[in-house]
Design a protein around this nucleic acid. Structure first.
Length: 269
DNA sequence: GAAAAGATTAAA
DNA sequence: TTAATCTTTTCC
């Protein structure tokens, strides 16, 4: 029943992704992004025999060397204080860190003001207050009475916007992740899905409003920008207005196996 | 106060 | 396909 509804509406819109206008104002941060960013321009097709699918995201240097993990920089508050639609794709490739566990963000969704799918649509309540706070905090809530969902609050204070972390790739602390998840696998079953991310990080709604830019607890560290991104309509929001259901506000790293279901609604922008 | 529904998951 | 499970929001 719900499955049928879920697949009924697949976004056919060709509306281009909104690109950053205001962007990040900190010049120092911009410089560092330039240095480490990988080209986002699609490579020209040299041969027709080439595989149509892009290869998996290259393994970040940080994965191989714990030493370089120590040098990874925590992202400043201003990184998050932009439109959720700009922030969402920028979070791809970044790292979530809690003690020994480090996850790389592979799939996200943007939720914004005047968005009938956003939890902020009823205004400030006890649960949603962090969504209206300054960008860079966590918004954590319980879904279906079972699952802990982690969002990154976006934009300025007073704006109700956030980015849902839907999937991650495990980087360090695999055994801790497996223990918390109750799964011994290393396959995407381990971390592809928003409830799984919250469980793997061992967080509860008590973590809502936690600052992600402060050392200690749960942090977001800088990471490489993905080569290519795929987009699609958001998942599980059939109750929303059609224009919001159809908006292509779900983003994922192209080629990564760490993507939640349904995958067939994602495609190049 | 009661009731419905939910940004889901794993197992059958 | 369905049960699990409980908080939030709405409606009477």
């Amino acid at each position: 029943m719900r499955m049928a509804q879920r697949f009924k509406r697949v976004g056919k819109s060709t509306k281009p992704i909104r690109t950053s206008e205001s962007g990040i104002n900190d010049p120092e941060y911009r410089a560092s992004q330039r240095l480490q960013s990988v080209s986002t321009v699609a490579k020209p097709k040299s041969r027709e025999t080439e595989s149509p699918k892009p290869l998996s995201l290259p393994i970040p240097i940080a994965i191989r060397s714990p030493h370089s993990l120590d040098e990874m920089k925590i992202l400043p508050p201003q990184f998050f204080q932009i439109d959720a639609l700009d922030l969402a794709p920028r979070l791809l490739g970044k790292f979530l860190k809690r003690n020994d566990v480090v996850l790389q963000i592979t799939e996200v969704e943007a939720y914004r003001p005047n968005d009938s799918a956003c939890h902020g649509r009823f205004g400030i309540t006890q649960r949603t207050a962090p969504v209206f706070g300054a960008g860079g905090h966590a918004y954590v809530y319980l879904c279906y009475g079972l699952h802990t969902m982690l969002n990154v609050v976006a934009d300025k204070e007073g704006v109700g916007a956030a980015v849902l972390i839907r999937s991650c790739a495990p980087i360090t602390g695999l055994s801790t992740i497996q223990q918390r998840r109750g799964q011994k696998t290393e396959k995407p079953l381990l971390l592809a899905g928003p409830g799984k991310v919250g469980q793997a990080l061992g967080i509860s709604k008590e973590w809502s409003n936690h600052p992600l830019y402060s050392p200690g607890g749960l942090e977001i560290l800088d990471g490489p920008n993905p080569e290519n991104i795929i987009v699609g309509p958001r998942v599980g929001i059939e109750y929303a207005l059609p224009e919001d259901v159809n908006a292509l506000w779900r983003f994922a790293i192209a080629g990564t196996p760490w993507i939640s279901a349904p995958k067939n609604t994602l495609r190049p922008p």
